[in-house]
Design a protein around this nucleic acid. Structure first.
Lengths: 149, 149
DNA sequence: GCGCTATGATTGCTCATGCAATCAGTCAGA
DNA sequence: TCTGACTGATTGCATGAGCAATCATAGCGC
């Protein structure tokens, strides 16, 4: 139980742990993906999110929500990927304000190449984090997260 | 158990959950702290980390490690805070390559003002996240994280 | 059908970040 | 004491991000 302040401090500490773990993992992913596949973490996320859609496409709007970026950042991110022909844009036929983005075959190929790197780095980063006493509990919790069906 | 691929997918999903929760919380913290106290999340973190040191100071090096930023980013971050007189730099007396940063009274005051905002936004963000089925399990796990003594 | 408001995406601008190069100070070895 | 390798911090440069303004299309109310 404890005082209200304890609850606040507990939340703050949980957040610091979360933030620290996140930053460390993202840092390593960023370096590895950049170096080995020329992808940033955001770029990887976009390709990954799109590839996991049933029909490989999404609106800009949904995309920026999925990767938690601003609309403008999403526009430019999609620009970069489109320039590299990893995805395509096309107008939504029923609402011409909307624009769909769709991974291309090249995008899926690159993603397939990058996945092993992503997983390896993620695994290594989690193992390293598990050795730090302040991060270990969260790593554990992450391992035991119930899976989506 | 399952195949190795399942393990990889589980880790990836855990990471996506972590990243999504982190991004959402950080987003809200950033806006609120910026608007109400003129602080970015990084800036708040620096003040917070320093204030939680026994003697309120840390080397640049340790600081960049604590907030997970590059050295150069840390230099500039400290510059900004020093310009606002929220912290001070001073040479390490025993090794003049090293530079200590120390929160000033003004920094501690500002931090004290910002803390309630920080906690309120954090609490709200966690509650909101707990309503999303894909984030709820992690929020739960965070609540049950063992506390540092 | 005609405006008016709302929604979706893009652009201009500014700024924080990372990498690589650099500068300053330390320390070991000749 | 001097030299060279090393560590700690800062600067030059390029880039990705957010905010606010803008443009294009939809769709409602008259």
């Amino acid at each position: 139980m404890g005082l209200p302040d304890d609850a606040a401090e507990a939340r703050a500490q949980g957040w610091r742990t979360l933030a620290a773990l996140h930053a460390r993992i993202e840092d390593e992913l960023e370096r590895a993906l950049q170096k080995q596949h020329g992808l940033s973490v955001s770029e990887y996320s976009v390709l990954d999110v799109l590839a996991r859609q049933d029909d490989y496409h999404l609106r800009m709007n949904q995309l920026s929500n999925a990767v938690v970026l601003s609309q403008s950042a999403t526009t430019r991110l999609v620009n970069r990927l489109e320039d590299r022909q990893l995805l395509q844009r096309y107008l939504c036929p029923t609402d011409r304000r909307g624009i769909y983005t769709e991974v291309t075959q090249a995008g899926r190929d690159l993603l397939e190449q990058a996945e092993p790197t992503h997983d390896a780095v993620l695994t290594a980063a989690l193992e390293k984090a598990a050795e730090l006493p302040e991060l270990a509990p969260l790593v554990d919790a992450l391992d035991n997260l119930p899976l989506k069906v």
